[in-house]
């Protein structure tokens, strides 16, 4: 237990520190790192991200972390990807030229420019603010990271592009913003949230807490 190592992969993204603070307040002791060795030897990892696709992918290319993260994802060890961190799990993004990690099949696309809601009001992009998250699995089959979180709990979102998964089974939750936005993904040990748990108050901290518990439980 004491030698459990959690790595927060430093993508150069501005929210690294908020993620670290959130993990610490729920009892984690993460290292924030760009070192391939430290990531590879960690028991669990978090991949945060904000900003633009190419900026983050270029950072990962420059730091030679692409293979490191892919290997980590396929190793079965818990990996939590947040916001842009979740988007780069996919193969490509309309936001940039650089390919994604390709851990999940699918792509990232811009919100349609003309989307309306039922009130006839124009929907704004970025999708910024608190929105309801609806999990697709019921409580029994839910991934441990999302277990016990009530349907329609509000989480904080900020993004202009959204994920379109090829495999519907990768989608763990959606939120309504003109379309049903992919709000969370689960693929075995790989979990992603489009929303920012580190900015979603108590509900968000609960996700970091459950991720830690899930990661520590694993052999």
């Amino acid at each position: 237990m004491n030698d459990f190592r959690l790595a927060i992969i430093n993508t150069g993204a501005a929210n690294i520190h908020s993620v670290e603070k959130a993990v610490r307040i729920v009892g984690g002791d993460p290292i924030v790192t760009t070192s391939a060795d430290e990531i590879s030897s960690a028991d669990a990892a978090i991949l945060p991200g904000v900003g633009a696709n190419d900026a983050v992918m270029q950072q990962l290319v420059d730091r030679e972390l692409i293979e490191t993260i892919r290997d980590f994802a396929s190793s079965g060890r818990p990996l939590l990807c947040v916001c842009l961190g979740m988007q780069i799990l996919f193969e490509s993004s309309e936001e940039g030229e650089l390919p994604g990690l390709g851990v999940l099949r699918g792509r990232v696309v811009r919100f349609p420019s003309v989307t309306g809601n039922s009130n006839g009001r124009r929907l704004k992009v970025p999708h910024m603010g608190w929105n309801k998250v609806r999990f697709l699995d019921d409580l029994v089959t839910r991934h441990p990271v999302f277990s016990g979180i009530e349907q329609d709990t509000y989480f904080y979102f900020v993004h202009s592009y959204h994920c379109v998964a090829d495999d519907a089974s990768d989608i763990a939750a959606t939120s309504p913003h003109g379309i049903e936005v992919c709000a969370a993904v689960v693929h075995d040990n790989v979990v992603g949230t489009q929303f920012h748990p580190e900015k979603s108050g108590r509900s968000g901290l609960e996700i970091y807490s459950k991720f830690l518990a899930y990661a520590r439980r694993r052999p």
């Binding site: 908020s18 603070k21 959130a22 307040i25 904080y156 580190e198 979603s200 108590r202 968000g204 901290l205």
Partner: peptide
Amino acid sequence: VSAEVFIP
């Protein structure tokens, strides 16, 4: 503040 309060 950001070490204690986890809203934007």
